[in-house]
Computed example of a mutant assay.
Amino acid sequence: MLPAPFPEISTDYAITIDVEDYFHVAAFETVISPDRWDQYPCHIEANVQRIIQSLDAAVGKAGKATKATFFVLGWVAERYPSLIREIAALGHEIASHGYHHQRLNHLSQHEFRQDITRSKALLEDLTGAPVAGYRAPSFSIDENRPWIQDELREAGYRYSSSINPVPHDLYGYRHAPRTPFLWDNGLLEIPVATAEVFNRRIPCAGGGYFRLYPYALSKRLLQKAARQLAGPVVFYVHPWEIAPEQPRIQAASAKSRFRHYLNLHRTLPRLERLLGDFHWGKMSDLPVVIHHSK
């Protein structure tokens, strides 16, 4: 049973980057296995650099460059260590996206433990700083694996941002609170943003929905989420989403191809508008994280 939302949290906006490439995504997991990832051209460095440039250029409501939280896949960090060090040196937060981009319902408890400890140790060795945050691949935490939170806590994570509290065929924990809460073991969970419209939860945190909706609608939903949520508005984007030139995976289903390639050419311009329209920061600077860590 889920606990009540964390009380008395002031609203803020957090921008998060899930550092994975196009061939890592769950939509292609049935046609591209992890043992074949090295066969595909990796565009992660160039795409992350484009995002960093956009963050540096965005003064937004804060009047200064925007800092973000980068949830880094361990597989990427192992192959591009200088990129991860650069992100950290620029003042962004480094958090964990696990080592392999495998949905948690595909992992045993032992495999999950290995995945999150390997990723955390690798990122901490690269940056020389503790890694506090974790995001599950494809928001794949659900009610069927209560040991997940215990393993995260035992591994030394202070917070998780692994819940998208909406129904979806690949992810979703529809009955979870929309606002931050503590699991029974004290681990802080910070769901990504949703807006409630006519008693229905509407996803507005990023990803495919950000590419599908007109920008004006995304902005209105985020503003509504800020008014409704007793806690931070968390948004996410993937580096591959700003790269319309990426290779096409023709073996994937038509549904997966539609979802993945929809409006890729619109993502970066929309993201740059978004960065200027709100006061964004990193997860570690949110009042709820600061309060909980004391």
Rank of each mutant, 00 (worst) to 15 (best):
H279Y: 02
P41R: 06
E29R: 06
I141S: 08
R145C: 05
Y157M: 02
L73F: 09
K282E: 05
S33E: 11
L268Q: 09
P214S: 04
A132G: 06
Q228T: 07
N199H: 15
A4D: 15
R79W: 13
F28V: 07
D285P: 03
P165V: 00
A226R: 05
Y215S: 00
P180L: 04
E196A: 07
H43D: 07
G207F: 01
F278R: 07
G207N: 02
A65G: 02
V59W: 00
K294C: 11
L188F: 10
P269S: 03
F258Q: 11
S161H: 11
K224V: 06
R227H: 13
S284M: 04
H238K: 00
S140A: 14
N263C: 01
H279A: 15
S162F: 08
P41C: 07
D184S: 14
F181P: 07
I51E: 07
E189P: 10
P137M: 01
E78K: 13
R248F: 14
A4Y: 03
L90C: 07
Q149I: 07
V234N: 09
N263Y: 13
Q228D: 12
D38E: 15
L212I: 02
R201I: 00
P239V: 02
I32Q: 02
S218L: 01
L122P: 13
T117I: 01
A26K: 01
S162A: 03
E143P: 08
Y261I: 02
A26V: 07
A88F: 01
H291R: 14
A243D: 15
G128D: 09
P7W: 03
A26M: 02
I94E: 12
S140F: 09
A225N: 00
I202R: 01
A155S: 15
P180W: 08
T127G: 10
D125G: 15
Y209K: 00
Y134L: 02
Y40C: 06
D35N: 14
S140P: 13
Y209R: 06
T30R: 14
A89L: 00
A205T: 02
Q228I: 04
E86W: 00
D38F: 08
G276F: 03
R79L: 01
L123H: 10
I190G: 12
H101C: 11
L221R: 02
D125R: 13
V48A: 10
V31G: 10
P34A: 05
N164C: 03
V166I: 13
L73R: 09
I15N: 10
I94S: 08
R220K: 14
H92L: 02
T194L: 00
